[in-house]
Amino acid sequence: MYRTLFSRDLFSELERLQREMQQSIDFSPSIRGLPRGGFPAMNIGHTPKSVEIYAFAPGVDPATIDVQIEKSVLTIAGERKVDLPAKEDKATIHIDERFAGRFRRVVTLPDDVDANAVAAQYRDGVLHISIPRREAAQARRIKIQ
C-alpha cells in the first residue's frame, strides 16, 4: 500500500487551516468595509421576509447600546467597560485581549427594509436586530387566469 510521509491527520489539519484563511479573506467588499476583527463581531443573514443582524457584544448594558437606522444605514454604537483591576490592588495583568472602550459599527441595509418595524433583543451577550422587508419586495406568486 502506498504510504505518505505525513499522517492523514496532518493533511486534514492543513486543509482546515487553509479553508479558514480563505474564509477570512473571501467576503464581498462593501463600500463601508465591514472590517473583520471589529467589535462587536457581526453575523448578517436574510430571509425572504426580513434581514437578521446578530452583533456579538457580551457584557454590555443593553440600555447603553445605541441602534439607529437612517436612510437604510444601520449604526450600532456604545461603550464597553471592562473591569480592570484597580491600581492599589497591585495586580499583574497577564493577558489583556478583550475589547474595552467605545465602539461603533455601520451596516448598509437593502433598500426594501421597513425601518419603522425594527425589533431588537439582547440575550446571552448577543444583540439581535430583525428588520422586516416591505411587502412589495417579497416575491409574489402570480396567478394565471
Binding site: 456579538f56 495586580a91 499583574t92 495583568i93 493577558i95 446571552d124 451577550g125
Partner: peptide, 27 residues
C-alpha cells in the same frame, strides 16, 4: 471539533487569579 478561541483577560493579585472570557451567544 473546530472551535473559536474566546478572548480573555487574566489578572493576578496576591490572593489569586481572576479570568474573564467573552463567550457571546452561549446560554
Amino acid at each position: 471539533k473546530a472551535t473559536l478561541m474566546p478572548p480573555v483577560d487574566v489578572f493576578e493579585d496576591a490572593a489569586g487569579i481572576t479570568l474573564y472570557a467573552d463567550l457571546p451567544g452561549v446560554p
